[in-house]
């Protein structure tokens, strides 16, 4: 389709206190429609309490071709993981 509506990325917060998470994308003519569409498409089974929409064109993404220089150097640095600590049981969502 030539005159397709712009794409929006949708972020849903599933519960108060949790962060918004990316759930998918959808087409809409404007931000208000994007919110309504996101409500209808992504929260009809009580998935959320808050919605963010962001025009996909506003997102700057890393280039898959740069995978080596961006991500591979982290592979052999296990000491960066906080696995050497005992976490208290009360801590959740970590």
């Amino acid at each position: 389709m030539k005159n397709e509506w712009p794409l929006y990325e949708v972020f849903i917060r599933s519960k108060n206190g949790l962060e918004h998470r990316h759930v998918g994308s959808l087409h809409a003519s404007d931000a208000e429609m994007a919110i309504e569409n996101a409500r209808d498409v992504y929260t009809r089974r009580q998935e959320g309490v808050s919605i963010w929409v962001v025009p996909s064109s506003e997102i700057t993404a890393s280039n898959p071709e740069n995978f080596g220089e961006l991500f591979e150097p982290a592979e052999d640095k296990v000491y960066r993981h906080p696995t050497f600590y005992d976490l208290p049981h009360e801590l959740k969502h970590i």
Partner: peptide, 11 residues
């Protein structure tokens, strides 16, 4: 007319 409006109307 679109997937999104289709779901909205059905809801």
């Amino acid at each position: 007319p679109s997937l999104e409006t289709d779901i909205a109307l059905t809801n």
